[in-house]
Amino acid sequence: DVEPGKFYKGVVTRIEKYGAFINLNEQVRGLLRPRDMISLRLENLNVGDEIIVQAIDVRPEKREIDFKYIP
């Protein structure tokens, strides 16, 4: 289970104008929005990159997770 405030290693699987989709595993995916990136820009991410993200909002009923990147 993903818990708000905890850090997780994930893989960038898709990049859109509104953010990057990060997979923690095959069943768990969330969104990293540009506003939640500190010292990292969306255009510097590539599909396949491994990054450490912090879960900031977890909505299991909608199967949605918002992430934050903190270097």
Rank of each mutant, 00 (worst) to 15 (best):
R14M: 08
R33Q: 05
I22Q: 01
E61N: 13
I22F: 03
G30K: 01
N25M: 05
R29H: 12
D1M: 14
T13G: 07
R41H: 09
V53K: 00
V47R: 06
E3A: 11
I52H: 07
G48N: 07
G19L: 03
L31F: 08
E50N: 13
I15W: 03
E43Q: 11
R33I: 03
G5M: 09
P60L: 11
V58N: 06
V28N: 07
N44S: 12
V58A: 06
M37G: 03
D36N: 14
D49W: 06
V12Y: 01
Q54K: 10
L42D: 02
E43K: 13
K68F: 09
G30Y: 02
A55N: 01
L24M: 05
E3G: 07
P71F: 05
Q54S: 05
I51M: 08
K62G: 07
V53A: 03
A55H: 01
D57P: 03
S39T: 14
L40R: 04
E16D: 07
D36A: 06
E16W: 10
G19T: 02
T13L: 05
F21S: 03
L42S: 03
N23D: 12
I51N: 01
R41K: 15
R35F: 07
I56Q: 07
R41F: 09
D36M: 07
N44Q: 15
R35T: 10
K17R: 14
D49I: 06
L40S: 08
Y69C: 03
I52F: 10
G19P: 00
K6F: 10
L42I: 12
I70C: 08
G19C: 03
K17C: 09
Y69M: 04
R29F: 13
Q27V: 12
A20P: 00
M37C: 04
P4E: 12
G5R: 05
K9F: 11
Q27C: 10
N46V: 14
R41Q: 12
R29I: 14
G48M: 06
V2W: 06
S39P: 15
V2Q: 02
V28G: 04
A20C: 07
D66G: 07
N46G: 11
L42T: 04
I15D: 00
D66N: 09
P71C: 09
R63Y: 13
Y18S: 06
N44G: 09
L32M: 07
P60G: 09
R14T: 06
Q54C: 10
P60V: 13
D36W: 08
L45V: 07
V12L: 03
G19D: 00
E26P: 15
D57R: 15
R29T: 12
I65T: 04
R59I: 04
V53N: 00
D66K: 09
E64L: 14
V2Y: 09
D57G: 14
R33K: 08
V58F: 08
L32I: 04
L24G: 01
Y8T: 00
V53G: 00
K6N: 09
F7L: 09
D49H: 05
L32G: 00
I22Y: 01
N23Q: 13
E50S: 15
